[in-house]
């Protein structure tokens, strides 16, 4: 049986890579959330052309493979638009963010649909503008339904960030490749052990993300119960 633990310098290299992974996860998550909110709401717009445009975006983002989108973004788009070489971080974050936005928009749409009609009708009766209605009434309630699938989606995006190593961004996977190169040069075996460690690191990060979303869910539910005096579970079951 081989030794399953790496040396500290190796872990230092991996941690540098982890920083790149988290950086790209952060930016693509941010872009993904913004896109999902915009297009999720746009898919319920009363205007037909807005709904159609949002549908085209969602179908495109959900239909294309994230790795192909990543390569198009990193290789074809800069040359097609003649913008020169943009930073890889930005290109990768845009590609992953577009991908996440497509799935997120459907989550947002489904959650808004799950909010009882009476809430919207009450807003109309109170003469709130559509923006106020969304901002103060519908979205805060939809948020509790959005969070659990959004957590799963974030873990999917974390898994997607490994792909950016294929276009040469220095994430965890790329640093692993670098380590392998140096190991091969030094004639040291044990590539499989290295990958097991990398997999465990990804697993831990995924569990941390999972925990953060659970925490957010718990806090939202607590606040909801305090303010309305209703049990959050009973309302959540409307959706399920």
């Amino acid at each position: 049986m081989e030794n399953w633990v790496l040396t500290w310098p190796q872990y230092q290299v991996l941690l540098t890579g982890l920083r790149g992974t988290l950086l790209i996860l952060f930016w693509s998550f941010l872009l993904g959330v913004v896109l999902s909110l915009i297009f999720g709401v746009a898919r319920l717009s009363p205007r037909e052309w807005i709904r159609g445009a949002a549908l085209v975006y969602v179908e495109f983002a959900r239909g294309i493979s994230s790795v192909i989108l990543l390569f198009i973004m990193a290789i074809a788009i800069p040359i097609l638009l003649q913008v020169g070489q943009a930073p890889l971080l930005m290109l990768a974050a845009i590609a992953l963010g577009i991908n996440m936005g497509g799935y997120g928009a459907e989550i947002v749409r489904g959650s808004i649909n799950a909010i009882p009609k009476g809430q919207t009708e009450a807003c109309v009766a109170l003469n709130l503008s559509p923006t106020q209605r969304l901002r103060h009434v519908v979205l805060p309630q939809a948020m509790r339904i959005i969070l659990p699938p959004m957590g799963n989606l974030t873990i999917e995006i974390l898994k997607g960030t490994a792909l950016v190593s294929l276009i040469g961004f220095g994430d965890l996977m790329q640093q692993t490749r670098n380590l392998i190169q140096s190991q091969l040069a030094a004639g040291v075996a044990g590539v499989t052990v290295l990958f097991v460690n990398v997999l465990v690191i990804y697993f831990i990060v995924a569990q941390v993300i999972n925990g953060l979303f659970r925490l957010g869910e718990w806090r939202l539910n607590k606040r909801f119960e305090e303010r309305t005096g209703r049990s959050a579970v009973a309302v959540g079951e409307v959706h399920a």
């Binding site: 974390l158 898994k159 996977m173 499989t192 990958f195 097991v196 997999l199 990804y202 697993f203 995924a206």
Partner: peptide
């Protein structure tokens, strides 16, 4: 749970390394 929350890319490369070893 472990396989579901780790990237397929890493699993593929791991599998390839395992097969070669």
């Amino acid at each position: 749970e472990f396989i579901r929350s780790t990237p397929l890319l890493v699993q593929l490369v791991f599998l390839q390394a395992l097969v070669r070893a």
